[in-house]
Write a protein that binds this DNA or RNA. Structure first.
Length: 463
RNA sequence: GCGAUUGUAGCUCAGUUGGUUAGAGCACCAGGUUGUGAUCCUGGGGGUCGCGGGUUCGAAUCCCGUCAGUCGCCCCA
C-alpha cells in the first residue's frame, strides 16, 4: 500500500497534550469570568448557511470564508467565521421567551480563509459575550418622549459597561495590568455629532470615519490632507490627531467626551469599577457598518487588537427577531496567548498539565519480580475510587528508574508494592518525599483513595 | 490575493568551493549501577536532507515548481 505524508492545513495547528492543556486553561478563564458576570453559555453549529454571512456582511465576505457544498447537494454552507449571526438567529427564534436583558457567552472554534501571520490563524478559538436587550421594558414605561429616551439611553450605557467590565474581568483573571492593556472606546453618535459640529457633511461621515480608523497607518501629512478634503480643519483637526485621551474622574478634559452618549458610558464604567482600564480613543471607529453606538477594542503595545466589539442595535431584527438593541465583543485565543506569553503570564507546562489533571495521583510500582502481577489490580482499584492511577509500561524492575518515571509524569504519590503483593508503602513525591512504613496493601489503597478523593467529578447516578 | 524570508532525525542545530554508507546534543527505547527527583556506564531505534522535477559522472548543497512555517501588505466580523 502506498503511503503518503500529510501536513496540517495552512493556518491550522495540531494540539498535543500540552497545547490542549494550555487552550483549556484559557477557555476555562473565559468561562469563569463570563459566568461570574452573569452570562450563560451557549453554542451553535460549526457551520451555517452561507447566506447567513452574506446577509450580515455582503457578497464580499465569501472570499474570506471556507464555504462548501455537499456532493450532490444544492445548499451552500460556510464554516463559521464569527458567532454573531448564529447568536442573532438563536435569539430571534426565542425572543419572546427570553429574559431582558439576555446575557450569553460562547467559546468555540471559528474559521477564516485569511493568510496566517502573527496573531492570526485560519482556525482559532474565540470568546464572545453579548448582552441582548435592556434592563427596561419600553412598553411598560409610562413616560413619553424625551424622558423615555433618556431612560433607554441610560440603560444602553449600563449594558455597554457590563460588556466592557466582563472583558476587564478576564484581563484581571489572567494577571494583566492596566499598564499592559487598555480598553479603548469611542461612540458612533459622538463621532457623528462632533463631525457635524466641525462642518463635515453627514453623507461624508462614513468616509471620514474610515480615515480616522486608518489614521495610525498613515503619515500625519497624508491624514491631514485626507480629512481636510471633507472640511475638517483647525481645532477639530488637532483633536482628531491626538488619539487616546484618558478619562478622568474629575471631569471631561477633552472636547470629544463632553458628548452626552460618551458621558453616560463613562459614568456606567465608573459604577462597574473599571475606569483604570479604559481610555477614550478618537481613532477607534471599527470598520463594520452595523455598529451603532459604543465601539471598543482591547489594545496592547505591539500586538493587533486582543478583542473588539460594540453595539449593534439593528442586527437582531436583520435576522428575523423583534427590534432589539444588543452589544457584545469577541476575543481570540491567538493574540491573547501571544500577549500572555510575552508578559510571562502563561503557567509553566508542568503547572498546566497538573491543572488539567494530566498528572497521576498515584504511580504504582511493583518492587521485585514477585510483586509484578500486583500493579494492574492495584491501579484498577484506585481508578474505581476515581483516582488517576498509572503504572509503568517499561520492562525494567529497577525501582530507582521507576521512581524517576513517576516524577517525570508529575505523580503526587508512588505506591511501592512489595512482599509478593501483600504489603505496600506510600511515598509522597510532591511534598517532602516522605515514605510510610510497610502496611497491608488493602490498607494502603484505602489510604490513597481517601487522600486523593476527587472533589470536582461531574454528578452521576449510581445504581 | 500580493511581497520578503526560511524548511537537514520528536526538539535545537552542524554539514566545508556539489564528491564515498548524512552527523552532534537533548529526547525516546533496552541493559547495567545507585531507591529517584537534571546520577553514571553501555548499546539501540529513528532522517528517501518538506515534496516534485531539472542540471551534472555525481546534489542536502545549483536551477524551476509546489507545499508548509515566519514576518509584512490587504482584510480584520
Amino acid at each position: 500500500m502506498a503511503s503518503k505524508s500529510f501536513q496540517a492545513p495552512n493556518g491550522t495547528q495540531d494540539s498535543y497534550p500540552i497545547d490542549l492543556a494550555r487552550r483549556r486553561w484559557l477557555i476555562e478563564h473565559w468561562r469563569r469570568v463570563s459566568t461570574r458576570h452573569g452570562f450563560e453559555e451557549i453554542d451553535g453549529p460549526t457551520f451555517e448557511h452561507l447566506d447567513v454571512y452574506k446577509t450580515k456582511s455582503g457578497e464580499g465576505i465569501v472570499s474570506e470564508l471556507f464555504s462548501f457544498r455537499r456532493a450532490g447537494g444544492k445548499d451552500d454552507y460556510a464554516l463559521r467565521p464569527e458567532f454573531t449571526p448564529t447568536l442573532a438567529r438563536m435569539y430571534a427564534a426565542k425572543a419572546n421567551a427570553l429574559p431582558k436583558p439576555t446575557k450569553w457567552f460562547c467559546t468555540g472554534n471559528f474559521f477564516r480563509a485569511e493568510r496566517p501571520q502573527r496573531g492570526r490563524r485560519r482556525e482559532f478559538w474565540q470568546w464572545n459575550a453579548d448582552v441582548i436587550g435592556l434592563d427596561v421594558d419600553p412598553q411598560q414605561m409610562n413616560a413619553e418622549g424625551a424622558e423615555k429616551d433618556a431612560e433607554i439611553a441610560e440603560a444602553t450605557a449600563r449594558m455597554d459597561a457590563e460588556v466592557i467590565a466582563c472583558v476587564v474581568g478576564l484581563m484581571q483573571a489572567v494577571g494583566l495590568k492596566p499598564e499592559d492593556v487598555k480598553v479603548r472606546f469611542n461612540h458612533r453618535e459622538a463621532i457623528a455629532d462632533w463631525l457635524q459640529e466641525q462642518g463635515v457633511e453627514e453623507e461624508s461621515h462614513t468616509a471620514v470615519m474610515a480615515i480616522l480608523d486608518a489614521a495610525k497607518k498613515m503619515k500625519p501629512e497624508d491624514f491631514v490632507t485626507a480629512v481636510s478634503a471633507f472640511g475638517l480643519k483647525g481645532d477639530g483637526l488637532s483633536v482628531a490627531l491626538k488619539g487616546p485621551q484618558h478619562l478622568k474622574d474629575d471631569g471631561y478634559p477633552d472636547i470629544w467626551i463632553v458628548h452626552a452618549a460618551t458621558k453616560r458610558v463613562h459614568r456606567s464604567l465608573g459604577a462597574a469599577r473599571v475606569l483604570p482600564w479604559v481610555e477614550f480613543d478618537a481613532s477607534i471607529v471599527r470598520g463594520l457598518a452595523y455598529y451603532t453606538g459604543t465601539v471598543f477594542e482591547v489594545i496592547a503595545d505591539g500586538e493587533r487588537a486582543v478583542a473588539g466589539g460594540g453595539r449593534y442595535d439593528g442586527l437582531i431584527e436583520m435576522f428575523g427577531g423583534p427590534p432589539t438593541p444588543a452589544v457584545g465583543f469577541g476575543m481570540g485565543d491567538v493574540v491573547l496567548t501571544n500577549l500572555l506569553s510575552d508578559k510571562g503570564l502563561l503557567p509553566s507546562d508542568d503547572e498546566l498539565m497538573q491543572w488539567a489533571g494530566q498528572t497521576p495521583d498515584v504511580f504504582v510500582i511493583a518492587a521485585g519480580d514477585d510483586a509484578a502481577e500486583a500493579a494492574r489490580p492495584a491501579c484498577a482499584q484506585l481508578r474505581s475510587h476515581g483516582l488517576h492511577a498509572r503504572h509503568s509500561y517499561k520492562s525494567t524492575k529497577n525501582v530507582g528508574k521507576l521512581l524517576k518515571e513517576a516524577n517525570q509524569l508529575g505523580a503526587h504519590a508512588a505506591l511501592l508494592i512489595e512482599d509478593g503483593g501483600q504489603s505496600a508503602k506510600i511515598k509522597h513525591l510532591k511534598s517532602d518525599g516522605g515514605e510510610s512504613e510497610p502496611m497491608p496493601i488493602e490498607q494502603a489503597l484505602a489510604q490513597l483513595a481517601d487522600e486523593f478523593r476527587p472533589v470536582d467529578a461531574p454528578p452521576s447516578k449510581q445504581r
